[in-house]
Design a protein around this nucleic acid. Structure first.
Lengths: 348, 348
DNA sequence: CTGAAAGCGCTTACAG
DNA sequence: CTGAAAGCGCTTACAG
């Protein structure tokens, strides 16, 4: 009679499976090798040091145990986390999402991860143990001042969209002056002379640069005139500011807005006064956010390559972390002419 | 004669300053105590175990050296990172930014950090060492299927905006059915009977639920009729889909759109046909993104508390990580009546 | 009240 | 080709 198979008592498992997550030691035991061999194989440094057969065995054991290396141990040993921080003023904007994507793609190709650091009010408390400040190899800060980043310690920093003079860090910027000049030239070519600037009431380099470039371009235009009103980046605030400009005795024939949201406000101000865009009033935006195409008429604006900003920023940081001195650079924007600009109406 | 002070040879510093970042051992040496005392003091566990005077000395030494604990070592020792992952389908949307803010705020109050996991195509390569998958204590996944999150291992998971039946994980959802019923009731109250549904061609629970709720509400309305066209969430695709509906012989008097972007497309379709919103056609959105206020007329829509979704999601995850069984919940939306809805025009 | 020591899980010389 | 050992910087019993 053969031994009863079914009635076998529920014997204890031969070797108690490790309680928690498997470690390289568990893999070593399963594969019948030493822990260091496991590390060599899984770290990809085994060529010529471990026999192919052993390497296979190790990999199979790791696979079947579902082994994943403990990154804390790895980071401690190596002194590096292969993680960089992306510091942005807000995440509630599709712009920074695009910057993130660009940065994360480049990072991934080099085995780095990107962590987004939240706006101040949402950040980890001031505790010295607050994650993840310490656990990073480098920092990319977008649209901030150098000072705002100084609290992050001595890690290598690249500044994005913060102006070419952002301290000693390498910078990547948009050539917003060129973009604004292209707007002015486009409008001037259409015949506009009386310009209104709906400015962003935000103290950032990019807006200062946009304003200065517009002022210079209009000043250089024979017969050119410029009036200006500032507003927070908010549709209703912009509507108000644009309205002031439109109520001026010598009404501008074109409203140049510092960004697309401001332009949406300008549309509203025009509509409230019975003014047609672009027949009675030309309006331009800046940035080319999705909003620009949702508006009616669709908005003439300057496309800023946000994702490319992330790509270039990460590339620069990688170079910096390797000890290089990446050159600062400026990315060109592109004037996108849509339906919100036209020649000015003749005198009534 | 006193010893010459000025001419003293540049002696080597008494004790060579530590080369890299200071460690707790450096602090201990500076404070004249043991490394474990430093750890106790800085970890806040010294009450009754270290004299107040010693604690002060330690803190001053830490301060003056600029000591920050090494989180890799801490994580390794503790087996926890106090970091959770927020997995979202895209960052290029203000919606997920708001979810992040909400989650990060709650997390910060409990000493946790939140890391955003990128969309697939930007994620770290499939390398087993890819950060930061291993280094997390829990996961919040928003607007995804349970399967999409299964690759992250055995960490506790909370599903957001994925439907109440998202596997075994606790869920936090929006009560989108209620929201859609409120839209239908609002429109019905205005006198509308012929509805068009501009549906999102996206296979997610939230859109299935919106569509089903609308269909049921219209079916329950005496004399109610519903036609439907689907489009990708894109202004131009929506314009096309809405246009089909508007070209129907029995033209709908109200277009109910699955989200605000779709509604922007509906505006365009209306305008292209010389139809006034809301005089000739009522339009509703869903989500209440910033776009809703940028549109002209401003959009009647359903406000979804995105930030609260993050807050509730993180609270649930915290409870889950502590071994609890958080109840699944649904957050109410709010109908926001603006200027895009009005009684239907009488028969021409 | 304070310190010496173990150990978290890795990587990497080093010895065989 | 393979293994034993040191050590990254912490936290926390444990002993005094």
């Amino acid at each position: 009679m053969s031994e009863p198979r079914e009635a076998a008592p529920p014997a204890a498992p031969p070797a108690a499976r490790p309680a928690g997550r498997p470690t390289s030691r568990d893999v070593a035991q399963a594969a019948g090798v030493s822990q260091s061999t496991v590390s060599l194989v899984l770290g990809g440094k085994w060529a010529g040091r471990v026999s192919p057969a052993t390497a296979r065995t190790v990999r199979e054991a790791a696979e079947s145990l579902g082994y994943r290396p403990n990154s804390a141990a790895r980071n401690l040993r190596l002194g590096t986390t292969r993680t960089v921080l992306l510091v942005v003023p807000t995440l509630t904007s599709s712009f920074f999402g695009a910057v993130y994507i660009g940065a994360a793609r480049v990072a991934a190709r080099h085995g780095f991860g990107v962590v987004v650091y939240p706006p101040d009010d949402a950040g980890p408390a001031g505790s010295p143990f607050a994650a993840p400040r310490e656990a990073i190899d480098g920092i990319i800060a977008s649209s901030m001042t150098k000072e705002a980043v100084s609290g992050f310690g001595p890690a290598p920093v690249v500044m994005l969209d913060s102006g070419p003079a952002a301290g000693t860090a390498p910078t990547v910027d948009f050539a917003v002056e060129d973009g604004m000049r292209a707007v002015a030239a486009h409008l001037a070519g259409l015949g506009h002379r009386r310009f209104g600037h709906v400015a962003a009431a935000v103290d950032e380099w990019t807006f200062r640069a946009r304003g200065a470039a517009l002022a210079a371009a209009v000043a250089a235009l024979p017969g050119g005139g410029l009036v200006r009103a500032a507003a927070a980046i908010d549709v209703h605030a912009a509507k108000e500011a644009a309205g002031e400009l439109l109520d001026l005795p010598a009404r501008p024939t074109a409203l140049v807005c510092d960004d697309d949201t401001l332009a949406a406000g300008a549309y509203k101000a025009a509509r409230a006064r019975g003014l047609e865009v672009p027949g009675d009033l030309s309006v331009t935006g800046f940035d080319d956010m999705p909003l620009a195409m949702a508006l009616e008429p669709e908005l003439t604006t300057v496309r800023l390559p946000a994702q490319e900003l992330g790509v270039q920023g990460m590339s620069a940081l990688l170079e910096l972390m390797e000890g290089g001195r990446p050159a600062s650079r400026a990315l060109p924007g592109e004037l996108v002419v849509r339906a919100s600009t036209a020649p000015p109406a003749g005198p009534p």
